[in-house]
């Protein structure tokens, strides 16, 4: 993209940034908006939030929100497979629940997750390019998956967001030092 002239001016700043930030731990935060959906039969969505490698394999599971207690409609884990991408890439090979990853379903609104570099979820994530995936599936409802590419341990602060059309509202990813 940039010309060599541009590159020359960027490199020193980047190196400066890297030298100063390298020692500092990075923090990844995600804002997830669950829209209010006006339907005859509403169930809170099941949501999976994970970090995918470039080849779509799973690098880290951040959170999975689902009904962990068996209810009158049966086993809560019954609908996990409706988060099709997550189920295929990770869920079906996991022993659930996972401490710190499994969580209860959430009400409409914005929910924020914050993970430090030393958290269980991210401690083994090496520097590189990844994709944050957020997948929501709702009983008697639809399914939507959103993806946000990002760089981990690049020494640069990043803020990106994407807005869903049906099951998910605005998803914002922030990497800060």
């Amino acid at each position: 993209m940039g010309s060599s002239m541009k590159l020359k001016t960027v490199i020193p700043t980047m190196m400066l940034a890297m030298c100063c930030f390298a020692a500092q731990a990075e923090t990844l935060s995600v804002d997830i908006e669950l829209p209010r959906i006006d339907v005859a039969e509403y169930h809170r969505p099941y949501v999976a939030i994970w970090i995918a490698n470039q080849d779509r394999t799973v690098a880290a599971n951040l959170n999975v929100w689902y009904q962990q207690e068996d209810g009158p409609e049966g086993e809560g884990e019954t609908w996990l497979k409706d988060m099709r991408q997550w189920w295929r890439r990770s869920g079906r090979s996991l022993e659930l629940p996972i401490d710190g990853v499994s969580g209860a379903t959430k009400v409409p609104g914005t929910h924020t997750l914050v993970f430090s570099e030393t958290s269980d979820q991210l401690s083994s994530l090496v520097a590189g390019e990844y994709v944050l995936c957020v997948e929501a599936a709702r009983e008697v409802g639809g399914r939507e998956i959103l993806r946000l590419p990002f760089k981990w341990k690049s020494g640069q602060a990043q803020t990106t967001s994407v807005t869903g059309e049906t099951e998910l509202g605005e998803i914002t990813l922030k990497i800060e030092s």
Partner: peptide, 8 residues
């Protein structure tokens, strides 16, 4: 065809 959980 594809299911999740302990018993279905």
């Amino acid at each position: 065809f594809t299911l999740s959980g302990d018993e279905q």
